[in-house]
């Protein structure tokens, strides 16, 4: 290992257990990384194997199982969470990459205890789900989508990329296309989001 390399742990990244790591046989000490995440507004400290994805950190280490594992490869959207307000596939991110960042999951999307976000309420009202497994991802995605629209981010459905986006039907569908639903609740998901976003 080239110690002269200036690629090293930054001061805020605590790494231990490096010694003896080798690949391909025999017990090896696994690196452990201490990180802090602000999960649903709460500062949370974790000591993790660096291989732990953000998704598995939430599900297996923080018991926040509302975020779902549908494919574990960024192709279904069931694991969608907000990182510093932006939606991502938490399966394609290491928890360590998010040290110090704010994570919002389905468990933290509502304004308060025993309350629902408007999107959550609309999903119930419109029956925008069946088995419910993609649902947290759909809801988190929809919440983020409305923010993205307000921020003026375009989608491929835009006729004019320079214009401020308007949530046409085609825009809504396109912007929600990163969340698959095999029960195929799309028409009702559409209706629920439309109820909240307005015509």
């Amino acid at each position: 290992m080239r110690k002269e390399s200036a690629v090293s742990a930054t001061s805020d990244l605590c790494v231990h257990g490096l010694a003896g790591l080798h690949v391909g046989g025999g017990p090896a000490l696994t690196q452990v990384i201490d990180i802090e995440l602000i999960v649903n507004g709460r500062l949370t400290s974790l000591s993790l194997d660096p291989r732990v994805t953000l998704l598995d950190a939430l599900r297996e280490h923080l018991n926040l199982t509302g975020t779902k594992k549908g494919c574990d490869q960024g192709q279904c959207g069931a694991c969608t969470v907000l990182v510093n307000g932006m939606r991502i596939n938490s399966c394609l991110s290491l928890a360590a990459m998010h040290d110090g960042q704010a994570i919002t999951t389905i468990e933290g999307i509502a304004p308060g205890e025993n309350e629902l976000h408007h999107i959550q309420a609309a999903f119930i009202e419109r029956d925008a789900f069946q088995c419910g497994y993609c649902t947290p991802g759909q809801i988190v995605s929809a919440v983020a989508m409305l923010d993205e629209l307000a921020a003026g981010q375009p989608s491929q459905a835009a006729e004019d990329l320079s214009a401020a986006p308007v949530l046409t039907d085609a825009e809504l569908r396109e912007r929600m296309s990163g969340n698959l639903c095999r029960c195929s609740a799309y028409p009702h998901i559409f209706a629920a989001i439309r109820d909240v976003a307005g015509a």
Partner: peptide
């Protein structure tokens, strides 16, 4: 409305791995 709707939209519904 689905009687299990609240649990599904809040992520409280626990599937087998959970």
């Amino acid at each position: 409305d689905r009687v299990d709707g609240w649990s599904k939209v809040t992520g409280q519904a626990r599937y087998s791995a959970e």
